[in-house]
Protein backbone atom coordinates (compact mmCIF):
# COMPACT_ATOMS: atom_id res chain seq x y z
CA UNK A 1 0.00 0.00 0.00
CA UNK A 2 2.55 2.58 1.10
CA UNK A 3 5.79 3.13 -0.70
CA UNK A 4 8.44 4.20 1.78
CA UNK A 5 12.13 4.53 1.08
CA UNK A 6 14.91 3.47 3.43
CA UNK A 7 14.37 6.68 5.39
CA UNK A 8 10.77 5.80 5.93
CA UNK A 9 9.76 8.71 3.72
CA UNK A 10 6.82 8.31 1.44
CA UNK A 11 7.89 8.34 -2.20
CA UNK A 12 5.42 9.81 -4.61
CA UNK A 13 4.15 7.50 -7.33
CA UNK A 14 3.94 10.25 -9.89
CA UNK A 15 6.70 11.59 -12.03
CA UNK A 16 7.92 15.07 -11.31
CA UNK A 17 5.66 17.21 -13.48
CA UNK A 18 6.65 19.58 -16.19
CA UNK A 19 5.78 23.12 -15.22
CA UNK A 20 5.57 24.21 -18.81
CA UNK A 21 2.04 22.93 -19.34
CA UNK A 22 -0.45 25.16 -21.02
CA UNK A 23 -2.64 27.00 -18.59
CA UNK A 24 -6.11 25.56 -18.47
CA UNK A 25 -9.07 27.66 -19.42
CA UNK A 26 -10.49 29.70 -16.58
CA UNK A 27 -13.88 28.82 -15.26
CA UNK A 28 -16.14 31.18 -13.38
CA UNK A 29 -17.14 28.54 -10.87
CA UNK A 30 -13.87 26.66 -10.77
CA UNK A 31 -11.70 26.24 -7.70
CA UNK A 32 -9.38 28.94 -6.44
CA UNK A 33 -5.73 27.96 -6.65
CA UNK A 34 -3.24 29.57 -4.29
CA UNK A 35 0.26 29.83 -5.73
CA UNK A 36 -0.40 26.80 -7.93
CA UNK A 37 -0.58 28.52 -11.32
CA UNK A 38 2.41 27.89 -13.60
CA UNK A 39 3.72 31.47 -13.59
CA UNK A 40 3.83 31.76 -9.79
CA UNK A 41 5.28 28.30 -9.46
CA UNK A 42 8.09 29.13 -11.88
CA UNK A 43 8.94 32.24 -9.86
CA UNK A 44 9.16 30.19 -6.69
CA UNK A 45 11.46 27.68 -8.38
CA UNK A 46 13.66 30.49 -9.69
CA UNK A 47 14.15 31.73 -6.14
CA UNK A 48 14.99 28.25 -4.94
CA UNK A 49 17.52 28.02 -7.75
CA UNK A 50 19.22 31.18 -6.51
CA UNK A 51 19.48 29.72 -3.03
CA UNK A 52 20.88 26.50 -4.39
CA UNK A 53 23.63 28.57 -6.00
CA UNK A 54 24.60 29.85 -2.55
CA UNK A 55 24.41 26.35 -1.13
CA UNK A 56 26.62 24.97 -3.84
CA UNK A 57 29.26 27.64 -3.31
CA UNK A 58 29.29 27.05 0.45
CA UNK A 59 29.51 23.28 -0.03
CA UNK A 60 32.40 23.49 -2.50
CA UNK A 61 34.21 25.76 -0.08
CA UNK A 62 33.63 23.31 2.75
CA UNK A 63 34.81 20.36 0.66
CA UNK A 64 38.00 22.21 -0.21
CA UNK A 65 38.67 22.95 3.44
CA UNK A 66 38.06 19.29 4.36
CA UNK A 67 40.58 18.20 1.73
CA UNK A 68 43.15 20.67 3.05
CA UNK A 69 42.52 19.49 6.61
CA UNK A 70 43.17 15.84 5.80
CA UNK A 71 46.63 16.69 4.59
CA UNK A 72 47.47 18.41 7.89
CA UNK A 73 46.29 15.73 10.31
CA UNK A 74 48.83 13.14 11.48
CA UNK A 75 46.82 11.07 13.95
CA UNK A 76 45.45 8.13 11.89
CA UNK A 77 41.95 7.90 13.43
CA UNK A 78 41.28 11.57 13.03
CA UNK A 79 42.78 11.55 9.57
CA UNK A 80 40.45 8.69 8.56
CA UNK A 81 37.45 10.46 10.06
CA UNK A 82 38.16 13.63 8.11
CA UNK A 83 38.81 11.60 4.96
CA UNK A 84 35.32 10.12 5.37
CA UNK A 85 33.88 13.57 5.90
CA UNK A 86 35.61 14.79 2.72
CA UNK A 87 33.93 11.95 0.88
CA UNK A 88 30.55 12.99 2.29
CA UNK A 89 31.21 16.58 1.28
CA UNK A 90 31.89 15.54 -2.32
CA UNK A 91 28.64 13.56 -2.40
CA UNK A 92 26.74 16.55 -1.12
CA UNK A 93 28.08 18.71 -3.94
CA UNK A 94 26.61 16.20 -6.36
CA UNK A 95 23.35 16.32 -4.40
CA UNK A 96 23.08 20.07 -4.97
CA UNK A 97 23.50 19.46 -8.67
CA UNK A 98 20.72 16.89 -8.45
CA UNK A 99 18.52 19.45 -6.70
CA UNK A 100 19.14 21.91 -9.53
CA UNK A 101 18.11 19.26 -12.01
CA UNK A 102 15.03 18.37 -9.98
CA UNK A 103 13.59 21.87 -10.29
CA UNK A 104 14.66 22.08 -13.92
CA UNK A 105 17.20 24.79 -13.20
CA UNK A 106 20.91 24.98 -13.97
CA UNK A 107 23.85 26.20 -11.93
CA UNK A 108 24.44 29.07 -14.37
CA UNK A 109 27.60 30.27 -12.73
CA UNK A 110 28.89 26.84 -11.97
CA UNK A 111 32.20 27.41 -13.70
CA UNK A 112 32.83 30.43 -11.49
CA UNK A 113 31.93 28.67 -8.29
CA UNK A 114 35.41 27.29 -7.80
CA UNK A 115 36.88 30.79 -7.78
CA UNK A 116 34.13 32.15 -5.57
CA UNK A 117 34.51 29.25 -3.19
CA UNK A 118 38.28 29.81 -2.86
CA UNK A 119 37.80 33.47 -2.12
CA UNK A 120 35.05 32.64 0.37
CA UNK A 121 37.21 30.03 2.04
CA UNK A 122 40.17 32.40 2.47
CA UNK A 123 37.92 35.05 3.91
CA UNK A 124 36.34 32.57 6.31
CA UNK A 125 39.63 31.18 7.52
CA UNK A 126 41.08 34.63 8.00
CA UNK A 127 38.16 35.57 10.22
CA UNK A 128 38.34 32.39 12.23
CA UNK A 129 42.07 32.71 12.84
CA UNK A 130 41.51 36.13 14.28
CA UNK A 131 38.89 34.69 16.60
CA UNK A 132 41.31 32.12 17.99
CA UNK A 133 43.72 34.84 19.15
CA UNK A 134 47.01 33.30 18.07
CA UNK A 135 46.39 29.78 19.35
CA UNK A 136 48.68 27.24 17.71
CA UNK A 137 48.32 23.76 16.19
CA UNK A 138 46.52 21.94 13.40
CA UNK A 139 43.43 21.49 15.56
CA UNK A 140 42.51 24.94 14.30
CA UNK A 141 41.79 23.37 10.94
CA UNK A 142 39.14 21.25 12.62
CA UNK A 143 37.72 24.32 14.30
CA UNK A 144 37.39 25.95 10.91
CA UNK A 145 35.87 22.80 9.49
CA UNK A 146 33.36 22.72 12.35
CA UNK A 147 32.10 26.20 11.59
CA UNK A 148 32.00 25.79 7.83
CA UNK A 149 30.12 22.51 8.16
CA UNK A 150 27.60 24.31 10.35
CA UNK A 151 27.26 26.92 7.62
CA UNK A 152 26.48 24.32 4.97
CA UNK A 153 24.21 22.42 7.33
CA UNK A 154 22.14 25.58 7.62
CA UNK A 155 22.10 25.97 3.85
CA UNK A 156 20.75 22.45 3.32
CA UNK A 157 18.25 22.86 6.17
CA UNK A 158 16.87 25.96 4.46
CA UNK A 159 16.66 24.03 1.20
CA UNK A 160 14.68 21.35 2.99
CA UNK A 161 12.17 24.01 4.01
CA UNK A 162 11.56 24.79 0.34
CA UNK A 163 10.56 21.21 -0.30
CA UNK A 164 8.16 21.32 2.63
CA UNK A 165 6.81 24.70 1.61
CA UNK A 166 6.10 23.77 -2.01
CA UNK A 167 4.86 20.25 -1.48
CA UNK A 168 7.90 18.73 -3.18
CA UNK A 169 8.95 15.66 -1.23
CA UNK A 170 11.69 14.97 -3.77
CA UNK A 171 13.64 17.89 -2.29
CA UNK A 172 13.10 16.63 1.24
CA UNK A 173 14.17 13.12 0.31
CA UNK A 174 17.53 14.49 -0.84
CA UNK A 175 18.11 17.08 1.87
CA UNK A 176 17.00 15.23 5.00
CA UNK A 177 19.66 12.49 4.74
CA UNK A 178 22.27 15.17 4.02
CA UNK A 179 21.28 17.13 7.12
CA UNK A 180 21.47 13.94 9.14
CA UNK A 181 24.94 13.17 7.76
CA UNK A 182 26.12 16.70 8.45
CA UNK A 183 24.81 16.56 12.02
CA UNK A 184 26.75 13.33 12.48
CA UNK A 185 29.88 14.83 10.91
CA UNK A 186 29.50 17.87 13.13
CA UNK A 187 29.59 15.67 16.21
CA UNK A 188 32.65 13.82 14.92
CA UNK A 189 34.53 17.02 14.06
CA UNK A 190 33.63 18.56 17.40
CA UNK A 191 34.85 15.54 19.34
CA UNK A 192 38.20 15.43 17.57
CA UNK A 193 38.62 19.18 17.72
CA UNK A 194 38.15 19.16 21.51
CA UNK A 195 40.51 16.20 21.80
CA UNK A 196 43.23 17.95 19.82
CA UNK A 197 42.67 21.45 21.21
CA UNK A 198 43.20 20.70 24.89
CA UNK A 199 46.46 18.84 24.19
CA UNK A 200 47.68 21.52 21.79
CA UNK A 201 46.88 24.43 24.09
CA UNK A 202 47.90 23.02 27.48
CA UNK A 203 50.81 20.78 26.45
CA UNK A 204 51.81 22.68 23.30
CA UNK A 205 51.80 19.42 21.32
CA UNK A 206 50.50 19.11 17.80
CA UNK A 207 48.58 15.99 16.86
Amino acid sequence: MNNYDSWGLYRSQVNFPSYKTEKAQLSKDGPILIDLDPKTWEQHLDRIGQWLGNTLMAQISYHQLAQDTVSKIQEPHIRQAITDITFHAANHIRAVEELFSLIDRHPYFFSQYGGHASAMLKETISGLKGMLGGAQGDWQMLHQLLLTNMNTLGAFAVTEQFGLLLGLSEITQITLPIIHQKQTDQLVINEYMLEMASISIVYQQNI
Binding site: L26, S27, G30, P31, I32, L33, L36, T40
Partner: peptide, 8 residues
Protein backbone atom coordinates in the same frame (compact mmCIF):
# COMPACT_ATOMS: atom_id res chain seq x y z
CA UNK B 1 -4.90 33.33 -6.09
CA UNK B 2 -6.14 32.35 -9.53
CA UNK B 3 -9.29 30.68 -10.77
CA UNK B 4 -8.71 27.19 -12.06
CA UNK B 5 -10.67 24.28 -13.40
CA UNK B 6 -11.34 20.81 -12.14
CA UNK B 7 -8.86 19.71 -14.80
CA UNK B 8 -6.17 21.84 -13.12
Amino acid sequence: ATKGTTED
